[in-house]
Design a protein around this nucleic acid. Structure first.
Lengths: 233, 233
DNA sequence: ACCCGAAGATAAGTCTGACTTTTAAGTCAC
DNA sequence: GTGACTTAAAAGTCAGACTTATCTTCGGGT
């Protein structure tokens, strides 16, 4: 689905990264370069590249005469998309999903408010199309089609805010929504109330009603939080 | 001030990173490995490590038979603390400062609300101490002392929220506040209204009044945004 | 004239071995 | 026990040879 070759170091990262974020190596653990390169059957140069990347994510720290030390979780660059993906694939997925959803509920309403004043005509059109797509796929277990439009909707809102920091969270939201659909068991069709809210947000943005767009989006994210409370302990 | 040796690759990054985020190499520019290693007078292995890190930040993309291509700004991992520092040191500092302040105004009120219900007794005490420190340094051009307490205040709020994503923004807020104090010419003492608001937030958190903590923090960040509107065009 | 496939060239990717540098830890004299 | 000195372990650096993917070009066929 994703990778092919993409470089040896990337393949090392694909297993070493999740292992660290997954807690296989508790903080303080010390790894040694040549042991790692033996274990992964790659040359030291490839191994160093991988370790350098982990170091830039603040997952590990490399010191002479000591080795590669695993850092405690609070040090990690949890906004790095790759780290997010690794953690969502791992064991503490529920906790991760919750903290990301809380972040969403802080950011997305603000983004929607800004989008109402900054969105281009094209972006308004995209929002409406997405909302229509969500409605069309909201019944009869068409979860995949629904998800695609849902992701595009939120991504457009974040981009239309005109704030690069908000825009960059589009991928994060996509991961959260995908995770919710695929892993969290969704027996039923999406909440009709949520669908209606999306339609109304598209409407509010088109009509340049910032306060309403913000408030409606707040209701959407609040709903997501409540849903999380129900499905996860 | 900061670095010493920290590895050759890090020294390369210190000049190549800012050069890219600063726009010295427009998106699409192609760099070649051996030219770079010549230019920086390091071996290719060191250069590769540096490029791998830049690649993990999505600043560049390395492809066989082509070279190292600079990616357009929307691709960059703008939440990476190092990227933030590079950009704040560069030319589009004002734009960066604004987008970060908008982010603050979305996140910090929510964090304060959560902090009101999650803060430990110790964290409440820290908040009060910081507020007192801010009051004490609010007159007579004691900007450095004021800044230190201001940073610690906001960092504590973010940490006390109990949300790791919020907590991780502590460094970002510190950079913004430091930037505002040092680069933005601050002729006068801090706004007395802001000082009062901080004291009240500490109070609200201590009294577990989430709504009030959130609202007061919203006023603080709104003030920061207005201040930016006045000082920057 | 146009399309397609083969050959060549180019730059990144990989591996290996020798060497350097930092620094933790152990040792010895006082 | 304290401090200076020695030792050794691990990361860091470098250089060179080789491999691999892929873009370009050139030639043959229709």
């Amino acid at each position: 689905m994703t990778a092919q070759v993409r470089g040896l170091h990337a393949r090392v990262l694909d297993t070493l990264g999740p292992a660290i974020t997954g807690g296989d190596y508790p903080p303080g653990s010390v790894l040694r370069m040549d042991e790692l390169s033996k274990e992964f059957e790659v040359s030291r140069s490839v191994m160093r590249e991988a370790v350098r990347v982990l170091e830039s994510m603040h997952l590990v720290e490399s010191r002479r005469r000591v080795g590669v030390t695993v850092l405690p979780a609070p040090e990690w660059n949890v906004y790095d998309p790759q780290v997010i993906r690794w953690r969502l694939a791992g064991a503490d997925r529920p906790r991760q999903l919750r903290s990301l959803t809380v972040l969403r509920s802080a950011v997305e309403p603000a983004a929607a408010g800004l989008a109402a004043t900054h969105a281009t005509a094209e972006q308004c059109a995209t929002l409406t199309e997405c909302a229509i797509g969500m409605v069309a796929n909201s019944r009869g277990r068409q979860l995949e089609g629904y998800l695609l439009h849902d992701i595009e909707f939120h991504r457009t809102i974040l981009r239309a805010s005109g704030n690069e920091m908000f825009a960059r969270l589009g991928d994060v939201v996509a991961e959260v929504l995908t995770g919710r659909t695929h892993h969290q068991v969704m027996f039923e069709d999406p909440d009709p109330a949520a669908v209606t809210l999306h339609v109304k947000v598209a409407e509010a943005v088109r009509e340049r009603d910032a306060a309403r767009a913000e408030q409606l989006t707040r209701e959407i994210t609040l709903g997501a939080l409540e849903e999380l409370d129900v499905l996860a302990p």
